[in-house]
Nucleic acid binder design. Sequence first.
DNA 1: GCTTTCAAGTGTCATTAATACAATATTATT
DNA 2: AATAATATTGTATTAATGACACTTGAAAGC
Lengths: 226, 226
Amino acid sequence: MFQEIKTHEITTDVVIFTIKDNKLQVLLVKRANEPFKGRWAIPGGFIRLSENLDNAALRILKEKTNVDNIYLEQLYTFGDPLRYPSSRVITCAYFALIRSDDIKLSFDTSQGITEVQWHEVYNLPTLAFDHKEIIEYSIKRMRERLEFCPIAFQLLPEKFTLTELQKSYELILDMKLDKRNFRKKVLTGSVLKELNEYTKLGSKRPARLYSFDNITLNSKRGHFFS
Amino acid sequence: MFQEIKTHEITTDVVIFTIKDNKLQVLLVKRANEPFKGRWAIPGGFIRLSENLDNAALRILKEKTNVDNIYLEQLYTFGDPLRYPSSRVITCAYFALIRSDDIKLSFDTSQGITEVQWHEVYNLPTLAFDHKEIIEYSIKRMRERLEFCPIAFQLLPEKFTLTELQKSYELILDMKLDKRNFRKKVLTGSVLKELNEYTKLGSKRPARLYSFDNITLNSKRGHFFS
DNA sequence: GCTTTCAAGTGTCATTAATACAATATTATT
DNA sequence: AATAATATTGTATTAATGACACTTGAAAGC
């Protein structure tokens, strides 16, 4: 006879943000099985015994989006005994920011998923488990982080215009920013490298391109926007 | 024959800060058993199936210090596969701030502890596991939080002088602050209630007492010190 | 090739926040 | 009454923030 061992299970769930179609979007998967069969959820999975938490989150991200080497940050660990029906599952949530252009979504059916899709964060469907709470918390955190370090770069292509950068800030903060003050601020921040290149397409005045100066990313302190 | 089920275990460890003897101190317990027998460690324990993470941390805090209803915040979850020898233990770390006066430390021997003691954070003994890293991370976090909300109140008695408050900021930030600027800042913050009471003891000019206006604790935004 | 269109780009002023800095006030003690 | 020790208070300078509107340059249409 087997001994029934009742233990905690531990997963990681990853809130993956992108900017797409001029909207702040989050990646959701549709569940193939109970509980919450047919509901949308944040991608997640069990943490393997031999991998650390960051790597587990990176693996899940890679499974769904096929990208690696991206901005990923531990968010919070959710462990209410009732958050999961019928068993105790504690989840260590992460959030990630990626560019949606150069990725194609993927999954295999063995993972209990029937669909993978971007959804606008301000217009979410009903979600499985406590995933709505997790997404709301990660938006809050992302906004806080944005004040201190320019993580919005992670959402943009390598070369971008200041208008594009401002737009991404506005989408994350869900507010309008003043163009001149924005430029003043990001340019004095010394995290931008001014390029001698300009946008080509578009029938209007070309805009100067900038790139992100990686070296100063982590050392950068001070506020961006309140 | 038993099936060997190899699973993660999940604990919570709580970094408990106090100010005592004019020093910022942290509560450590001495381990009775292997691994790390005889070493100092942060108090911690397994999370029960029926309790949520906050409650687990509160329970551990209560077991060691016999206090409840105190400031407690989830810090970070540490899950390196090698952080624990011989098994996989993921820990959800918390930190807490308490007044050391009105508590007496306690433990029972069934918990694998031979001693409980305060230690100065800037002069720690060799610690078990990755607990040094956890403490360092919580100091960093505490300093960040101090910029935004006046958590230092948690370290002081109900009624306190501005000099005492400033001292606690200085101990946490490990730097000297200007007296006039400090007072200007905390008084404009509208989190302090000015009392019509003064210190009695001491042979010098009595200092006015203040108390903390609880109502505005969570709503308080804006920076305190950089 | 001239005009129109549209986003890109730019500067100042006013207000507020941050910092540096030192003399006076109050009580207890002698 | 003088002394000792800590509490209390203000100003001037500098930096950061926020509000605000016109000029520039390339492409497209005529």
